[in-house]
Amino acid sequence: MNVFIIGSKGIPANYGGFETFVDNLTERKKSKKINYHVACFTEEKKEDTHYNNARCFYVKVPNIGSAKAILYDLYSLKKSINFIEENNLNNTIIYILTCRIGPFIKLYRKKIKRLNIKVYVNPDGHEWKRSKWNYWVKKYWKLSERLTIKNSDFVICDSKNIEKYIKEEYGKYTPKTTFVPYGAEVIPSNIDDHNSELKEFYDKYDITPNNYFLIVGRFVPENNIELIIKEYMKTNTKKSLVIITNVSNNRFYQELLSRTSFKQDNRIKFVGTVYNQQLLKKIRENAFAYLHGHEVGGTNPSLLEALASTKLNLLLDVPFNTEVGKDAAIYFNKDNNNLSELINRIDKMSEEVRNKYSLRAKNRIIRDYDWNVITSNYEKIFEKALVEGIKK
């Protein structure tokens, strides 16, 4: 079985959920029946290479703004189909990560059918709900999601709530679905408390280990950074609020500043992004608590990393978060003063209680989100497709 994975930026993973997923899927491969081919984004012409025993094929696209990602997926799809045809490959799957190119799949449908290619898809979350998109982009995302599901043979959802939504929303297409979550590892960082890069980070932003609340996520409205900042500014805690995000002086930032005046509160610290994964893990481990305000769909990788690394986790009470956190986290809502009052209570929480939550969180990851189990489940799915193909 040859599995072509498109939709991620490729491997090795530098940053991002899908990239980390593909990295783990290929690195932990046990099956000798599966060959992975991974589309990798590049800005210069490159020849195919191998990494993690997977073939990496590079896709270069012109810089056309926000539509660049759509073009990248289309070029990746075309390259995959051409390679399958040129090499007379049988028993092939093209696994599409997220639903960016739904309206264009039908252009290749005849060729896909002639070459007996199966199309699998991971719909990710509710991209069409993201507030950063204007009305027409949201309409495109919803259309693209519908047409991707319609033209796929199998849908792999990393959230039970997303699987439920796909079955209900697109029931007329009778989609075949399954649930396989995203993963994480309960392994301590390889950085100790005396690490020079860690100390430099803390010194630069005047942060004290174990004396800060932490946010990690994209700088977008649907992650509810504004809500968290407003509520935090009402609290009595002396602890810092450290926000690791791709902050930029854009319209959202100016509106956030205008509506919260957060610069007047020296506890609130925007520290940019941290690309060193071991350093980021150590910063998570040294946080007093993690705050997770994400509300737009799917199993969020940063939430899994938090449960694997941070003792105490406070999550926005939406189905996608409660599905993952269960009793290993504490929940807040958007009601006025709900989060601020919770933080004031949490601030006095004993180390013994925090340790109990920490143990629950780590056991949750080990039991249900272990990468080895997840990659094994993927191999079973792909091998099942191989058996069905041979029977035909």
Results as ranks from 00 to 15, higher is better:
residue 6 I to V: 09
residue 9 K to V: 08
residue 9 K to H: 14
residue 9 K to Y: 13
residue 14 N to H: 13
residue 14 N to C: 05
residue 15 Y to N: 12
residue 19 E to W: 07
residue 20 T to F: 03
residue 23 D to C: 10
residue 26 T to E: 07
residue 27 E to R: 13
residue 27 E to Y: 06
residue 32 K to G: 15
residue 33 K to A: 08
residue 34 I to H: 08
residue 34 I to D: 05
residue 37 H to G: 07
residue 39 A to D: 07
residue 46 K to C: 11
residue 46 K to I: 11
residue 47 E to A: 12
residue 48 D to Q: 12
residue 50 H to T: 15
residue 52 N to S: 08
residue 55 R to K: 14
residue 60 K to L: 11
residue 62 P to C: 15
residue 62 P to Q: 14
residue 64 I to K: 12
residue 76 S to F: 01
residue 76 S to A: 11
residue 88 N to W: 00
residue 88 N to A: 01
residue 92 T to M: 00
residue 96 I to M: 09
residue 97 L to K: 02
residue 98 T to A: 07
residue 98 T to E: 07
residue 104 F to L: 07
residue 111 K to T: 15
residue 128 W to C: 02
residue 132 K to N: 14
residue 135 Y to H: 12
residue 141 W to N: 07
residue 141 W to P: 00
residue 143 L to S: 06
residue 148 T to A: 04
residue 149 I to P: 12
residue 150 K to W: 04
residue 152 S to Q: 02
residue 157 C to G: 00
residue 158 D to E: 15
residue 159 S to G: 02
residue 160 K to M: 14
residue 161 N to Q: 10
residue 163 E to S: 00
residue 166 I to E: 01
residue 166 I to M: 01
residue 168 E to P: 00
residue 174 T to N: 13
residue 176 K to H: 09
residue 177 T to G: 01
residue 192 D to L: 02
residue 196 S to K: 14
residue 203 D to Y: 03
residue 205 Y to H: 14
residue 214 L to M: 08
residue 218 R to V: 11
residue 223 N to P: 05
residue 224 N to V: 11
residue 224 N to W: 06
residue 224 N to M: 06
residue 228 I to R: 06
residue 228 I to S: 03
residue 236 N to M: 05
residue 236 N to V: 07
residue 241 L to E: 06
residue 246 N to C: 09
residue 249 N to M: 08
residue 255 E to F: 04
residue 255 E to I: 10
residue 259 R to D: 09
residue 266 N to L: 10
residue 272 G to C: 11
residue 272 G to N: 10
residue 273 T to W: 08
residue 277 Q to P: 01
residue 279 L to Q: 03
residue 286 N to M: 08
residue 290 Y to D: 09
residue 300 N to C: 04
residue 301 P to W: 09
residue 304 L to I: 13
residue 307 L to M: 11
residue 311 K to I: 02
residue 322 T to G: 00
residue 322 T to C: 01
residue 324 V to R: 00
residue 326 K to N: 12
residue 329 A to E: 09
residue 336 N to R: 14
residue 337 N to A: 00
residue 342 L to H: 05
residue 342 L to K: 14
residue 343 I to A: 08
residue 346 I to P: 07
residue 347 D to I: 12
residue 351 E to P: 01
residue 352 E to K: 15
residue 353 V to T: 15
residue 356 K to Q: 13
residue 356 K to A: 05
residue 366 I to L: 09
residue 367 R to M: 11
residue 367 R to A: 12
residue 368 D to T: 03
residue 369 Y to C: 00
residue 371 W to Q: 04
residue 373 V to D: 15
residue 376 S to I: 00
residue 383 E to N: 15
residue 386 L to R: 11
residue 387 V to F: 06
residue 390 I to K: 15
